[in-house]
Simulated scan of single mutants.
Amino acid sequence: MHISLKPLREQVVVITGASSGIGLATARMAVERGARVVLVARNEEALQDIKQQLNAGERVLHVQADVGDREQLERVASETIAHFGGFDTWINNAGSSVWGRFDQVKDEDHHQVMQTNFWGTHYGSSIAVKHLRDKGGALINIGSVESANALPFHSSYSASKHAIKAMTDVLRVELQKSRTPVSVTLVRPSSTDTQFMDHSKNYLPSAPVFPPPVYAPEVVARAILNAAEHPQRDVYIGNAKLLSKLAQNAPRLADWINRTFVYDAIQSGRPDQHPRGALHDSDVGAAGDGKASGNYPGMVLKRSLYTQATQHPLATTAAVAVGAAALVALLGRRGR
């Protein structure tokens, strides 16, 4: 079944987790491209500031909500419908995290990660599909490289992203079988420079840090918005597909790499300025919001050639062909 999606400039886009990081980068880019945007997050003050900064008037609506509460997400949908008449793309981006050894992290913290990440995506997907079932549109869930390749000290986060992948795959098949015109995409970022670490609760003796390569949040945002216009099943950012395939096809090797290199690399040795993070509602805003980029100390990549090639295969092929023709021409002149 062919699914046709509107150009972004004609869309209303709902983005959860829009007060920082990937969500904020996506919101900024969507507004720049003419979309009407609904910003959703727990931090009301940050959302108000972001709406003012976007300077897009009535094209931007902000709704304070905790995605782990279905009633609050239902309110997001109802306020969006009241303000814009409906929505065309729903992006389940909100996420939380806790770092620490599995046996040292409190059950309540593991539970909160699952409530936000899995149940927030579950509720959002259910609400979005109910609205889009007849009119069509896009549902975009944010998974992770950890949807396949779990990281040390990140058990509940990795578990939540595994669960999101499974739920998204099942939902996609069921919608395809019923010929429902909704595109269902799983975006899988790898290490991304956002405020993620500041917002994560941390049991480790030092601040955690993602292993490189690390990508700018705008790399993920461009991929998300491409999927909002062009139906796609999976979108991998950077080296996410390589690491996913490694975990699936050579699990013992993946375990060895995580045990030998990643385990130590995650522990930066630097003091953690925000060990409580923003996992629980009582800590929202304490670690800061309102920024797309984080404070990664190393190189941050502004492009993912792999992602660009997979999302724009014809353009990439044409560029390679032009480059090859230019190289042949240059070599031909030198050979005269």
Rank of each mutant, 00 (worst) to 15 (best):
H2E: 10
S4H: 14
R9H: 12
E10F: 01
Q11P: 03
V13W: 06
S19G: 06
G21N: 12
A27I: 00
R33V: 02
A35G: 08
R36D: 09
V40G: 02
E45A: 14
L47G: 05
Q48V: 14
D49K: 15
Q53A: 14
H62S: 07
H62K: 09
Q64T: 15
Q64N: 03
A65K: 09
D66W: 01
G68A: 08
L73I: 12
A77F: 09
E79D: 01
T80A: 11
G85Q: 05
D88N: 01
D88S: 05
I91F: 11
N93E: 00
N93A: 09
V98D: 01
V98Q: 04
F102M: 07
Q104A: 10
D107L: 15
E108T: 10
H110Q: 05
Q115Y: 02
N117C: 05
F118V: 14
G120H: 02
G124R: 00
S125T: 08
A128F: 07
K130G: 11
L132H: 13
I140W: 04
I140N: 04
N141R: 08
V145W: 02
E146Y: 02
A148N: 11
N149Y: 10
L151P: 00
P152C: 12
H154A: 10
Y157E: 09
Y157T: 05
S158K: 01
S158D: 01
S160W: 02
H162Y: 13
K165Y: 04
A166I: 10
M167P: 04
M167H: 02
T168Q: 09
V170L: 07
Q176F: 03
K177C: 09
R179K: 12
V182Q: 00
V184A: 08
T185S: 00
T185K: 09
L186H: 03
R188F: 10
R188C: 15
T194E: 06
Q195Y: 14
H199C: 06
K201F: 05
N202Y: 02
L204A: 06
L204S: 03
P205Q: 05
P212G: 12
A216L: 05
P217D: 07
V220E: 05
R222A: 15
R222H: 11
I224N: 01
N226Q: 02
A227P: 07
G238K: 11
N239V: 15
L242Q: 13
L242K: 14
L243S: 01
S244W: 07
K245L: 13
P251W: 03
N258P: 00
D264C: 04
D264A: 14
A265V: 09
G269N: 10
G269T: 11
R270V: 12
R270C: 10
H274G: 12
P275F: 06
R276V: 09
R276Q: 12
G277R: 01
H280P: 05
D281H: 05
G285K: 02
G290L: 03
K291G: 01
G298T: 08
M299W: 07
R303E: 15
S304G: 09
L305M: 12
Y306G: 14
Q308W: 14
H312P: 08
L314M: 13
L314Q: 15
T316G: 01
V322H: 08
V328T: 10
A329P: 00
L330R: 13
R336L: 14
